[in-house]
Amino acid sequence: MLSKRIIPCLDVREGRTTKGIRFENNVDIGDPVEMARFYYEAGADELVFYDITASHEKRNIMIDVVRRVAETIFIPFSVGGGIRDVDDMRNVLLAGAEKVSVNSAAVKNHGIISQGAEIFGSQCIVLGMDVKYVGESVNIPSGYEIVINGGRKYMGIDALKWAVKAQKLGAGEICLNSIDADGTQDGYELKLTSLISENVSIPVIASGGAGNPGHLCEVLTKGKADAALIASMVHYGTYTVSEIKTYLDSCGVKVRKSW
């Protein structure tokens, strides 16, 4: 049977990894290529890189990071952050990423999903969604609204409607980040995760809020997620990927145990 995937997430700014707490006060913790090697050898099933470099001129630094990561690890990894068009997608994929994720650009221009899927295949295109709970309303029937620009701009778009639409446009996977849970280490947003996962037929990666292995168990069972993103709980050495998998295995969650 298919294993649930455990995916460390690395934020990269100008070629160095950071971990943001609620998108602010990023702390520098190292070299992305070395961290990729570390997590590859530690049993991570996949990696996610977010380029949070502010200046567009410095974005070629990330392409070089992607190329060096691809020469070092032999598991899939995706790259997101600042992907504006099909050319940005192509650069990342040609440098060696398995998948590319789009977030704000897709909200503003739906065509980037369909064009990307047509040129590179749906399996390459991940839709990143930043979501905040705002309460149910006529415009936001699910109560969950799409926000962009790192959680600062509310878009008036219902998260569930957007997920279903993005799947139709050709997204092959959804990386679902709860702004409310992100950085809290209090657990994933289970209600949001199961709502989206049960209403799309593509895999959903849960993101935001992981603090201990029990949180992963919850989101991969009750939350119906296909994969779980982790950051601080492994970056600071609180848990290893192996410890998390041993715990999940003991809870009856199918994980990859040999690497």
Partner: peptide, 30 residues
């Protein structure tokens, strides 16, 4: 189950083959 089948899965009913030497029972593939 979601389609496509995407992620890590194991192998069963493995036959002997020179290319499959050093395969462990719990090994999974993408």
């Amino acid at each position: 189950l979601k389609i496509p089948h995407m992620g890590w899965n194991g192998l069963e009913n493995i036959k002997k083959h020179p290319v499959l030497s050093n395969l462990h029972e719990e090994d999974e593939f993408y």
